[in-house]
């Protein structure tokens, strides 16, 4: 089992000023899921970026199985260790859906193209987009775009998935579909999931809930009503 750990992490911005994270300690283990909540502007995204090695903390350390993850040479390591999903899908507009999903493989440079393509096609099928491999982002709906982003995030079988408001731009059935796929695939892949969310859509699905306030994790609760272990893929 792998773990991502924030150890006494501190983050302060020179402008507009203020401490965002004040001695935060947090652990995310592969296979478990957690939702991070807090009021708007409290630093949830910064927390996620620090945990994912995109933002260097002002103090403390970010560790993956004991190794510091932010070191400059660890860029590719981070790419293979952590999958990201953003509220805005962040797909490259000039690439097809399949090409977008394959992008992590191209950057990481591991394995053969054939095996990577096979996995990418399987993931697109898992998110119900097998007929849209060659579609460009302009021709996909919001829900479809986010599902492609989900497939991309899981291509290299990362032990951890960090999602920043993954359903924030969606509504109704699309939001629920993406949520269900997210949890179903994470459980199947054994990936640890940390999702940032304003709402309560993830509350009943995660193993625990953490609340960020005043730069600290001030509350961590156990998982909700729990649909852990249940496969939702067939529901729709």
């Amino acid at each position: 089992m792998s773990e991502l750990r924030l150890q006494d992490v501190r983050l302060a911005y020179a402008f507009p000023g203020g401490v965002v994270l004040d001695g935060v300690n947090f652990v995310l283990r592969s296979g478990e899921s957690c939702v991070l909540k807090g009021r708007s502007g409290c630093g949830k995204t910064s927390f996620l970026h620090v945990l994912g090695g995109l933002l260097e903390p002002s103090g403390g350390q970010v560790l993956w199985d004991g190794r510091v993850i932010f070191a400059a040479k660890q860029n590719v390591l981070r790419g293979r260790t952590i999958g990201f999903i953003f509220q805005n899908h962040c797909l490259l507009p000039g690439l097809t859906a399949l090409e977008n999903v394959l992008l992590p493989w191209r950057i990481a440079g591991c394995g053969s193209f054939r095996s990577a393509k096979s996995r990418a096609q399987k993931l697109l099928a898992d998110v119900w987009l097998s007929g849209k491999e060659h579609s460009v982002p302009n021709s996909l709906s919001g829900g479809e775009l986010q599902r492609v982003a989900l497939a991309r995030a899981l291509l290299l079988r990362p032990p951890f998935l960090l999602a920043d408001e993954p359903t924030g731009s969606l509504d109704g059935a699309a939001e629920i579909r993406v949520r269900d796929l997210l949890f179903d695939l994470c459980r199947r892949e054994g990936a640890g999931l940390l999702a940032v969310s304003h709402g309560e859509i993830f509350d009943d699905f995660v193993d625990r809930t953490a609340t960020l306030e005043g730069g600290k994790i001030c509350g961590e609760g156990g998982h909700g009503s729990g649909l852990s272990g249940q496969c939702l893929a067939k529901k729709y």
Binding site: G52, L54, A72, N75, V76, L77, R78, G79, R80, I82, F84, F86, N88, C90, L92, L103, P104, I107, A108
Partner: peptide
């Protein structure tokens, strides 16, 4: 800029 950020998130230097 967002694409640059994505590429960094995917492990690009």
């Amino acid at each position: 800029a967002r694409e640059m950020g994505l590429l960094r998130a995917l492990g690009a230097r």
